[in-house]
Simulated scan of single mutants.
Amino acid sequence: MLGEDEDSLTCDFAQTYGILDIRAVPAVTAAVLAWGLPEDSRIKRILSGSKCSLDSLLLASIADAQNLNLWTKAREGTPRPASLVDRLLGVSADPESSASFTIDEFEERRAQMLNGNQEVRDG
């Protein structure tokens, strides 16, 4: 952990344990304390490749669901709201290009699949 991002580990130790000089702690003690850091600590997020904490993702997911619910009740032509989860994760998906289709397009694709013609249309 120390070799991955010393500054993040130092900040985590200061915030969690009040230890400002990580190198003053015996190596075994530092290892035990590092293992005991919370899952949303800076260094554990870096090591796991997470862009944000699980709590933030869950809250963003709730907000996305609410925004999508409101959007389905909005007047036609209202642009689909951008996903907060996608923003937090750094996904640059165009909300208009996400999987949306008309009922006719769905029925046509369903009929193709049921008839054994599973060739996907471009479009």
Results as ranks from 00 to 15, higher is better:
residue 66 Q to I: 09
residue 108 E to V: 15
residue 49 G to T: 00
residue 105 E to Y: 14
residue 81 P to I: 04
residue 41 S to P: 00
residue 115 N to R: 04
residue 25 V to F: 10
residue 112 Q to G: 11
residue 102 T to R: 14
residue 88 L to R: 02
residue 108 E to K: 10
residue 13 F to P: 00
residue 81 P to C: 03
residue 103 I to G: 11
residue 9 L to H: 02
residue 19 I to R: 07
residue 61 S to V: 00
residue 106 F to P: 07
residue 104 D to H: 15
residue 34 A to E: 04
residue 48 S to C: 08
residue 80 R to W: 13
residue 110 R to G: 05
residue 58 L to S: 07
residue 6 E to T: 12
residue 56 S to F: 05
residue 93 A to Y: 06
residue 98 S to G: 13
residue 83 S to P: 06
residue 13 F to K: 00
residue 35 W to Q: 05
residue 100 S to L: 10
residue 47 L to R: 07
residue 71 W to S: 02
residue 62 I to Q: 09
residue 93 A to C: 08
residue 65 A to M: 13
residue 69 N to R: 10
residue 46 I to V: 11
residue 103 I to M: 15
residue 101 F to E: 15
residue 98 S to K: 08
residue 83 S to I: 05
residue 64 D to H: 00
residue 71 W to G: 00
residue 39 E to Q: 06
residue 97 S to Q: 15
residue 28 V to H: 15
residue 12 D to Y: 01
residue 10 T to H: 03
residue 69 N to Y: 13
residue 60 A to E: 04
residue 43 I to M: 09
residue 76 E to Y: 10
residue 23 R to F: 14
residue 103 I to F: 15
residue 43 I to Q: 02
residue 105 E to N: 15
residue 14 A to D: 04
residue 98 S to W: 14
residue 23 R to H: 12
residue 16 T to I: 12
residue 77 G to E: 01
residue 34 A to G: 02
residue 29 T to L: 13
residue 16 T to L: 09
residue 26 P to G: 10
residue 39 E to Y: 04
residue 11 C to R: 13
residue 63 A to K: 04
residue 88 L to G: 04
residue 108 E to L: 09
residue 50 S to F: 04
residue 69 N to A: 11
residue 33 L to H: 02
residue 12 D to R: 01
residue 65 A to C: 12
residue 95 P to C: 03
residue 108 E to R: 09
residue 55 D to Y: 07
residue 109 R to Q: 07
residue 10 T to P: 01
residue 78 T to R: 02
residue 116 G to T: 12
residue 26 P to S: 06
residue 121 R to C: 12
residue 37 L to M: 14
residue 15 Q to S: 08
residue 24 A to M: 12
residue 56 S to Y: 13
residue 81 P to M: 07
residue 111 A to N: 12
residue 55 D to T: 08
residue 78 T to P: 00
residue 48 S to A: 09
residue 15 Q to A: 13
residue 72 T to M: 10
residue 72 T to A: 08
residue 115 N to P: 08
residue 104 D to Y: 14
residue 122 D to P: 05
residue 66 Q to W: 12
residue 52 C to P: 00
residue 50 S to D: 13
residue 101 F to Y: 14
residue 52 C to G: 01
residue 57 L to G: 03
residue 21 D to V: 09
residue 33 L to D: 02
